[in-house]
């Protein structure tokens, strides 16, 4: 049982936080811009390497350098939207999907050009000892930080979306873009904020993954499928649903490799990443609007 909590439950919550942060962005972009953003994983990678670059100059904990990664991701997202996505907005959205597919490639090759394709380990001042609670629970400090940060972000995001003018405008556009236009809402401003939030959260998520393991150019791409699954699970256009979806996918992935019956892992750990996909497929068959009644696009 203790082994279960230490080696499965806490890591599951940590990776769940990463998926949650990524899925929020995907869900919001899907809801407001109406397309599946295939470059979101690689946007995550870009943000991660932004922190990495800053860490080479400033010797403090990478977590404190997160704003650099967020800034880089925001700039790249806004740039790409302005140059590549915006001109395609009048066309069927599938063209934007194809474009984002190409943008994923552009992001990745840029990262590889500047930083190479090898693994990069963050120099965060040696291995930190895990937190030990009651002499039994051993939790990585980073995992705790990830979960706490995600919880704070979730609360802040909820208040932003329900109380502020920009947040309400975002929900309005996500609800009905035509009516939002008729109401005179500034749709382009809403789009900009969508990218700003999506990109910042992606950068933070990428940073946690990179600090937990290492940074490499495929970091974000490898996370794309579980993040999509989480976004669909939570219901498109439901940011809090996407958060919950992230944790569900994270838990499902980790717990599927626990030896529930006998000594054998339920599903071989090498197929862990397939779990998210299978959940996504099952959901598309049974309940495509997601668990929390999102929109069906």
């Amino acid at each position: 049982m203790i082994e279960f909590i230490n080696f499965y439950l806490f890591p599951a919550l940590a990776i769940g936080s990463v998926y949650a942060l990524g899925a929020v962005g995907i869900s919001m972009i899907f809801g407001i811009l109406r397309f599946a953003h295939f470059a979101h994983g690689d946007l995550m990678t870009v943000g991660t390497y932004g922190v990495f670059a800053a860490a080479g100059v400033i010797a403090v904990s990478p977590l404190l350098l997160a704003p650099f990664g967020m800034a880089l991701a925001i700039v790249m997202a806004l740039l790409v939207d302005r140059v590549f996505y915006q001109p395609l907005r009048k066309l069927p959205t599938i063209y934007t999907v194809i474009s984002s597919f190409g943008v994923a490639l552009i992001f990745r090759s840029l990262v590889q050009m500047f930083w190479g394709s090898q693994n990069q380990v963050f120099n965060s001042g040696g291995v930190r000892p895990p937190l030990v609670l009651f002499d039994t629970f051993r939790i990585s400090v980073l995992h705790v930080q990830a979960v706490l940060a995600t919880a704070c972000i979730a609360v802040a995001l909820h208040f932003f979306l329900s109380r502020t003018r920009t947040g309400r405008s975002m929900r309005a556009v996500s609800d009905d873009p035509e009516l939002a236009e008729v109401s005179g809402l500034d749709t382009e401003k809403v789009v900009r904020w969508t990218w700003i939030i999506g990109a910042s959260l992606a950068a933070i998520a990428g940073l946690f993954v990179a600090m937990d393991t290492s940074a490499h150019p495929n970091l974000g791409w490898n996370l794309l499928m579980p993040m999509f699954a989480a976004a669909i699970l939570g219901g498109i256009g439901k940011p809090m649903g996407a958060m919950a979806g992230g944790y569900i996918i994270g838990l499902a992935e980790e717990l599927s490799s626990y030896h529930w019956i006998g000594d054998q892992a339920l599903i071989s750990p090498s197929y862990k990443t397939a779990v998210a996909f299978i959940i996504m497929i099952a959901l598309l068959i049974v309940r495509p609007q997601g668990l929390f009644k999102g929109r069906l696009l």
Partner: peptide, 13 residues
């Protein structure tokens, strides 16, 4: 479903 879902599913496969 909308074509975006086919894209996700095919990439997942």
């Amino acid at each position: 479903l909308k074509s975006d879902y086919l894209a996700m599913a095919s990439i997942g496969i």
